[in-house]
Amino acid sequence: MFLSTSAFAEFAPEAVSMLKPKYPGNLTNVEGHARISLNIHKDGSVSDVKVLSATQPEFGQAAMAAASHWRFKPWTVSADRPAVLDANNDMIFSPEPLTTVPVELTFRNTTYQSCSALSEEVSQFRRDHPTRPLIAMKSFAITRVAVMFPALSGKSDYNEGLSRADALENALPDIVRKCQANPKKTYADYLPGNLKHYL
């Protein structure tokens, strides 16, 4: 981040803490910037943080929220060090890479993932696909294939495989609730016992 002070002041205060702005949670894959103005006081505090321009209103809000917590090294007022400095700052926003479940998951590392990872995947899935059933989520879809696999490969009755898949789907709301309450457990801990031996 670049901080420019008033053209009338050659003195630039030393930053002690310049909190970076958080990328707005309701935006995805959008890059942009925000320009703010602020006053820096001789005691190192800041005031009058304002948005001068922003490519998205959310970027302006995030920039203001971060800058209001900035702190600078206090200084002694002198002829070339005024009590208050006017400053401007430009902040660049880039979407952060999402932490998602790896694409190539085996049945085992899907079912033995932590409940905290599963809960994160559920939250992301519900944000991205609010109307889709939980069984369509990647980890649950992989588990469904696992319990159906003996039937799909001809090793067991197809109707039995469908019954197992239905049992899994019916258990999902309970699995999600239990995992959210116990993030250190694993997804497998809450799978119905009669399904575990297919995984």
Rank of each mutant, 00 (worst) to 15 (best):
109 N>Y: 06
121 E>K: 00
192 P>L: 01
35 R>S: 12
19 L>A: 15
174 D>I: 05
18 M>T: 14
78 S>C: 02
151 A>F: 07
130 P>E: 06
173 P>L: 09
85 L>R: 08
93 F>W: 05
67 A>H: 03
111 T>W: 10
169 E>T: 13
155 K>Q: 14
143 T>R: 02
20 K>D: 15
94 S>N: 14
184 K>I: 10
116 S>A: 15
51 V>A: 06
196 K>N: 02
165 A>D: 09
127 R>C: 04
134 L>I: 02
191 L>I: 09
54 A>C: 06
194 N>P: 03
162 L>H: 04
39 N>D: 14
174 D>Y: 08
138 K>T: 11
30 V>M: 10
40 I>T: 01
196 K>G: 01
127 R>F: 13
78 S>T: 13
19 L>N: 12
84 V>L: 09
172 L>H: 05
180 Q>K: 15
127 R>W: 09
11 F>D: 06
71 R>L: 10
43 D>C: 07
183 P>T: 08
141 A>K: 13
76 T>Q: 15
127 R>D: 11
30 V>A: 09
148 M>N: 00
162 L>N: 10
3 L>D: 01
112 Y>R: 12
190 Y>N: 08
101 V>F: 13
8 F>L: 14
22 K>G: 00
73 K>M: 09
177 R>I: 04
178 K>M: 10
123 S>F: 01
99 T>Y: 13
122 V>D: 08
43 D>V: 06
83 A>F: 07
13 P>Y: 07
69 H>F: 11
166 D>N: 11
143 T>N: 05
116 S>M: 06
104 E>L: 15
5 T>I: 14
62 A>K: 03
115 C>M: 02
20 K>V: 10
107 F>H: 09
62 A>V: 05
144 R>K: 14
61 Q>I: 13
173 P>E: 08
198 Y>V: 01
80 D>M: 05
123 S>W: 00
49 V>P: 05
